[in-house]
Computed example of a mutant assay.
Amino acid sequence: MVGAYKLLEQNGYVFSRAGSGSYVAESTGRPDDESPAGTAADTVEVMPNRPVPASGIDFATVMPPPDLLPIDDFKNILIEVLDRDKGNAFSYQDSQGFQPLRGAILTSAGDQDPG
């Protein structure tokens, strides 16, 4: 995460103030803008509870935009797993790995059942 902020700072998108936090430089919309980032008049403080503009990325939540998530696929897979494993879907697997996967690997390698 620190590397990402350093890269953003190098490209003039953000700047940091010791003891104060990280700030987003206001964009003028001109790619050739040579004005220095970091003056209070042209910045917006990043706050976790402040709404992020539609064109922005919310680094506080580390969450992709909801419209990018394949909800129907997740729902179908979750239903399939719950139908198959019932309450065991919420337990930890064997420390040696998922038994059906281990068996499939051994079968494809020509070995015996892992038993």
Rank of each mutant, 00 (worst) to 15 (best):
G97P: 01
L106A: 14
D83G: 07
A37W: 05
S35C: 13
G56R: 14
I71N: 02
I105E: 07
V2P: 00
D85W: 01
P53D: 14
G29H: 04
G12Y: 10
L8A: 12
P65G: 09
A109W: 09
P64C: 02
D85M: 01
G3F: 05
A40M: 07
R84H: 09
V2Y: 07
T39Q: 14
E26H: 07
A40R: 11
P48W: 05
G3H: 06
N49A: 06
R17M: 13
P66K: 01
Q93Y: 03
T39P: 04
D113P: 06
G38L: 06
D33S: 14
G29T: 01
S27N: 13
L7M: 11
G115P: 03
S95I: 08
N11E: 13
L68N: 08
V81T: 11
G3N: 11
G115K: 09
I71S: 00
A18S: 13
G110V: 03
R102Y: 05
I77K: 13
D72G: 02
T39G: 13
P36Q: 09
I77R: 14
P51M: 03
P51Q: 01
Q10A: 15
E34M: 15
P66A: 07
I79K: 15
I105Y: 04
S35Y: 13
V44E: 08
P114Y: 01
G110S: 02
N11D: 12
S16M: 02
Q112F: 04
G38T: 04
A109F: 10
D73Y: 12
G19A: 08
V24S: 07
T39A: 13
V24E: 03
G21S: 08
P36H: 00
V46G: 07
V81H: 05
Y23C: 08
Q93D: 10
R84S: 08
P70R: 07
D113F: 07
E26S: 10
G3P: 03
D67W: 00
A4H: 00
L68T: 11
